[in-house]
Structures are given as structure tokens and as C-alpha cells.
Computed example of a mutant assay.
Amino acid sequence: MVDLIGAENQALPVLVLAGSQQTEQAPKVANGRTFVSGSDAIIAAFAELYGIPVPHP
């Protein structure tokens, strides 16, 4: 993870997006890679990108 997005962003969970993928889920950029951090944001990103359902409250 450190190689991909740097030591300052190594807290997990993190979803590093492929290539030109973008999401509305508070994306961050490091070393030229876009990523989303935090489980709730990652679940929302998967729902946005792939249409999977979000967990029920």
C-alpha cells in the first residue's frame, strides 16, 4: 500500500481505483492514484461504480 499511495495514506481499509475510474465518495489522490478510504466510503463507491446494493441500516 505504501508503494501505491504513500506512507501517509497507509491506514486501512483503502480502495485504490483502477486507471481512470472516479467516484463521488470523497476520493483522494496520491502518487497519481485515486483512492477511497474508510469502509462506509468504500461500500458506497462499490455501489456507485458497480451497482451493488448497500447494507440495510
Results as ranks from 00 to 15, higher is better:
Leu15Asp: 04
Val16Ser: 01
Ala30Gln: 02
Asp3Trp: 08
Pro13Asn: 07
Pro13Lys: 00
Glu48Cys: 00
Gly6Val: 10
Tyr50Lys: 12
Leu15Met: 11
Val2Met: 06
Gly19His: 12
Pro13Tyr: 04
Leu17His: 01
Pro13Cys: 07
Phe35Ile: 05
Ala41Arg: 00
Asn31Lys: 15
Ser37Thr: 09
Val36His: 03
Val29Ala: 01
Ser20Val: 10
Ser39Phe: 08
Gly6Ser: 05
Ala44Ser: 15
Ala30Met: 10
Tyr50His: 09
Ile43Ala: 06
Ala30Thr: 12
Ser20Pro: 14
Glu48Asp: 14
Arg33Cys: 03
Thr34Asn: 09
Val54Phe: 06
Asn31Gly: 00
Val16Cys: 13
Leu15Arg: 07
Val29Pro: 03
Val29Phe: 03
Gly51His: 13
Val16Ala: 02
Leu12Lys: 14
Leu49Thr: 03
Lys28Met: 15
Ser20Leu: 15
Asn9Cys: 05
Glu24Asp: 14
Val16Gln: 00
Pro57Met: 07
Arg33Thr: 03
Asp40Tyr: 11
Ala30Ser: 12
Val29Thr: 15
Asn31Ser: 13
Leu12Asp: 04
Asp3Lys: 13
Gly38Met: 07
Ala7Arg: 13
Val36Thr: 00
Leu12Val: 15
Gly6Leu: 05
Ala44Cys: 08
Ile52Leu: 09
Ile42Asp: 01
Ser37Ala: 10
Ile52Asp: 04
Ala18Asn: 10
Gly32Ser: 09
Ala44Thr: 01
Thr23Ser: 14
Glu48Leu: 04
Ala26Ser: 15
His56Leu: 13
Val54Asp: 03
Ala44His: 04
Lys28Arg: 15
Val14Tyr: 03
Pro27Trp: 08
Leu4Phe: 14
Leu4Gln: 13
Val14Ser: 03
Gly32Arg: 10
Thr23Leu: 11
Met1Lys: 11
Gly32Gln: 13
Met1Leu: 13
His56Arg: 14
Val29Arg: 08
